[in-house]
């Protein structure tokens, strides 16, 4: 049986959104029950090293704007380019933090630059070893981790 890392991914994602994005989980409603995200914005971070794979982060469409405004500390809504930049950086931080939790602190990974994907783009290959859903004050988030065989 493959080890699942759902809880670790949940913790890492919540910590990253809270520390860097100043967002926190809302009431303990299970966002996994809320059905698929409508019109999500999706970022993917590929990595290679002792194991290769990808981290996929999907969020509700309004979330990147909230995230960018929080991260820059600005009064006004951040421009579209900054919104995607902030969201990609968040995906990068989650990816960088989950890898040592599953592969150990000695493993050295190359984390590739995050990319924004089309909603209907085929998901990354490999096996999904972790999934987590967060309901944050800025919107819903779904994170999945894929490892290549």
């Amino acid at each position: 049986m493959t080890t699942r890392y759902d809880q670790v991914l949940q913790d890492v994602a919540a910590e990253a959104f809270s520390t860097l994005g100043f967002m926190f989980p809302m009431d303990e409603g299970d966002s996994a029950d809320a059905g698929p995200l409508a019109d999500p914005v999706v970022a993917e971070v590929c990595f290679s090293g002792p194991q290769s794979g990808a981290l996929k982060v999907a969020v509700e469409p309004q979330l990147p704007a909230v995230l960018a405004t929080n991260m820059t500390g600005a009064d006004d809504q951040a421009p579209a380019e900054q919104q995607l930049d902030a969201f990609k950086e968040m995906a990068n931080v989650i990816c960088g933090n989950i890898l040592p939790r599953i592969a150990g602190q000695e493993a050295v990974f190359d984390v590739h630059p995050p990319e924004i994907c089309r909603q209907d783009a085929p998901g990354p290959g490999g096996q999904c070893v972790a999934q987590a859903g967060l309901l944050l004050d800025g919107g819903r988030v779904e994170v999945s981790l894929f490892l290549n065989a």
Partner: peptide
């Protein structure tokens, strides 16, 4: 869980306001 407690939410919002 840690992240569902009012206390940690208070801290996050506090940090956000200081940052702003």
């Amino acid at each position: 869980g840690d992240f569902f407690a009012i206390g940690s939410r208070n801290v996050t919002v506090f940090r956000k306001i200081l940052w702003k």
